[in-house]
Every structure is written in C-alpha cells, then in structure tokens.
Design a protein around this nucleic acid. Structure first.
Lengths: 159, 159
DNA sequence: TCAGTTTTTGTAATCATTATTAAATGATAA
DNA sequence: TTATCATTTAATAATGATTACAAAAACTGA
C-alpha cells in the first residue's frame, strides 16, 4: 500500500526534485496538521521540534516548491501572513474557507460549490480558469450559539 | 446634485471622522483610478503628485479607515501587497476578480455570482456570511487570443 | 575519487506595514 | 478671542514576514 508521502515523493521525482529529509519533515508536519492553516513560521517551529537543525529559509523554500507543484495551496486571509494548506489528493479544485470575524476560527469546505459559477465565468467572461480562491467572512456556528445564549441570559435578567 | 465624494464625506461624518484634505486627496485618487487595484504605495505616489506634502503613514491610515467603513475593500492576490478597491456605491457585496497568470491583468466582475452558493453555506454550514472574497486565476481573453494566433503562426511555418 | 550540481544553513538584506512622537490643525467653551 | 482638549498629520524608527546571498554540505555520475 502506497502512502501519501510516497506519492508526494513520486510527484517531486517526476519534476526531478528530491524528497530530502528536510522536505520530508516539512511535508510530515503538514500531513499531521491538516486543516490548521499553518503559517510558514508555524511550520518551521513544528518541524524544528523533531528536526532541530532545520533552517527557516529551507522551510520557506520547501513550501514554495510544494505550492509550485500544487501539493499545497498558499492562502492569505489578510492578516499579513501566508498560510499553507495541503490540497486534497486528487482534488481538482482548492477547498473554500470560512473565516470567523469573532473568534478567528477558519473552517474548510471541501465540496465544490463553484461548478456553476465557473461555467458562467468561462463562458460569459471568456476566462480560462486554472484555480480559484473563495473565502467567506462572517460568524461561525460556535459564535452564533454563544451570542444566542448571551441574549437569552440578558432576557432572563430583564424579566 | 450630491457627488460621490459628498456622500463619502457624510459617511465619515456619521462615524465622527472628518474628511481632511489628506483624506480627500486619497479618496480622489481612488475615484480617479477605479478598477486599477492600487497598492498603498501606488496610492501614495499618486496622491503625492497633487499633494506632495502628504506622508506615507497617512495614506496607510486613511486606507485602513476607508476599509473599516467598507468604502474600500482590501484584497490580496498573493503577491505580498494589499490592494484597495472602491466598493461600488450601494453594492451589498464585494466584486470578484479575474487574475491572469500570463500577463498579470486583473479584471473585475461586478455581478453577484454567489447568491446561490451563499444560501448553501448559510444553511448547510450554519455560517452567517458578512463578506466574501472570490478570485479566479487563469488565462484572460487577451492572452488566449494571443496564444491562438501564435499556434496558427506555428502551423503556418510547418506547412 | 573527482567534478559538478543540488540543497541547506545561517545570516544579512529587503520590503510592506505599523508604531511612535512631536507638531499642526480643528473644535469648543469660557 | 483665547485657552484647552481631541484629532490628525508628518517624519522616521521599528517591526515582522519573506527573500537573497555566500559558504558549507550532501549527492550524483563518470
């Protein structure tokens, strides 16, 4: 049974890149922290725990390489740092994000919600889509719950 | 007839901010360069042409203020700089972008393409949407044309 | 083994953005 | 009008993320 890291290794080899120990350590951190939207610095610190000799520049270079090969996607939520997400294996498209403006949580939507929209863009705007970024900013279900219960509390105090 | 800048002035006043000469100069640059996706530095240089005494920090502060009031939207195409777009007057939503990976051109789509998608997100993910960012990366119609004619040229050479 | 290429490290440099501080401006009320 | 207080600005220093660089290390293939 071929593991995910094996397939990434092959992917690198197919472009005549090697999976060096440093690159492997970086990829492993990404695999172990999916859905966490790590910044380069985050990745660096996590990699350092197991491979203390790694350099920050190497992590940056590796992430850049992985992004180039579409193994990870680089995203930016407007907070001044780039974040790196593993792309789902075989996924034709990049997943979407829900950023909570209350608590800062970032949730992912793996479903492809843009099929119809992309058809419209390709046809009506004559634009050949290669990739996309879709992020919603709003209130996550957790914070909504909290707000509800706070309102109830207030109502109770007034009664 | 009330002008757009008058309405922006009112908008600022309603939040007890003033439209200082520096702020007005900045807004005017944005109005005169709609669809240009200017970076803070771009705005600074343009403002400086007419108001050489303005400081860079002032431009940054003004853009931040305008973003807070939803007069402009701050976007990031992943190239390390934030860009600032005037929001269409009365527009409930922020327009979408088409970024060409060949020539770097950025086109805008003012139509709201996400109505249905947003319903799905609100219902299925129980997320209260306040704003969104949608960007497509691909090949613009101009570069597609160019590629077509290049191919024809090649075909001609081989005949 | 040797020569050549790739990769890494550690650090310096860069670049966008933010913080700071003193001066300027503007509004307010006596 | 003038003293006072808050807001805004300019100039520049500081910060923080990212990139560039140069020397060392690791690998590759003959």
């Amino acid at each position: 049974m071929e593991s995910r890291i094996d397939r990434i290794k092959k992917h690198l080899h197919s472009q005549s890149y090697k999976l060096t120990p440093q690159r492997e350590a970086t990829v492993r951190v990404l695999l172990e922290n999916e859905e966490d939207h790590l910044s380069a610095e985050d990745v660096y610190l996590l990699v350092k725990e197991k491979s203390p000799e790694i350099g920050l520049a190497t992590v940056y270079r590796t992430l850049e390489l992985l992004a180039e090969l579409k193994i990870v996607d680089k995203i930016n939520f407007g907070d001044g740092v780039s974040r790196f997400d593993l792309r789902q294996e075989g996924a034709a498209h990049f997943h979407h994000h829900l950023v909570c403006i209350e608590c800062g949580a970032v949730d992912e939507i793996q479903d492809d919600l843009l099929g119809d929209v992309e058809k419209v863009v390709e046809n009506d705007w004559n634009f050949k889509i290669k990739d996309h970024r879709l992020t919603f900013h709003g209130i996550c279900y957790r914070c909504q719950k909290q707000e509800d219960s706070e309102q109830q509390e207030q109502a109770a105090n007034h009664s």
